[in-house]
Write a protein that binds this DNA or RNA. Structure first.
Length: 104
DNA sequence: ACCGTATCAACTA
DNA sequence: TAGTTGATACGGT
């Protein structure tokens, strides 16, 4: 464990992110292993609710891509949506299959 | 299944 | 300030 969640939060504050972005990223870090939220659910969690679009934009700028469980955020349709990390949606699918054992 | 509209925040001209 | 885009959501056709 080199990067504690608290350290990541501190780093986020150091980046040139807006309050909204930081809010979304922090909430994403708060997602536990085995927890999968939809963009809408995440938006509602931070109190914006209908800002699912802005939430997606926030995750895509995510400076700690591999450290933040952004792969645990999927679409309401049950599809994985997109992923800015290595391998794109393919990698995301494997991560979810490994952590949450999603149904293929 | 496909298209249009709704809604929010950030980026660029 | 205005216009466009985006890792979406939902309803109508």
């Amino acid at each position: 464990m080199k990067a504690s969640k608290r350290d990541l939060l501190r780093k986020l504050d150091s980046y040139n992110l807006t309050e909204f972005q930081k809010l979304v990223l922090k909430e994403t870090l708060n997602i536990e292993k085995g927890e999968v939220l939809t963009y809408k659910q995440l938006a509602e969690r931070i109190g914006h609710g209908k800002a699912y679009r802005a939430v997606g934009s926030a995750l895509k700028i995510n400076p700690l891509a591999p450290m933040i469980p952004c792969h645990r955020v999927i679409r309401s349709d049950g599809t994985l949506g997109n992923y800015s990390g290595t391998g794109g949606s393919r990698r995301k699918r494997e991560l979810l299959a490994s952590e949450n054992a999603i149904a293929s």
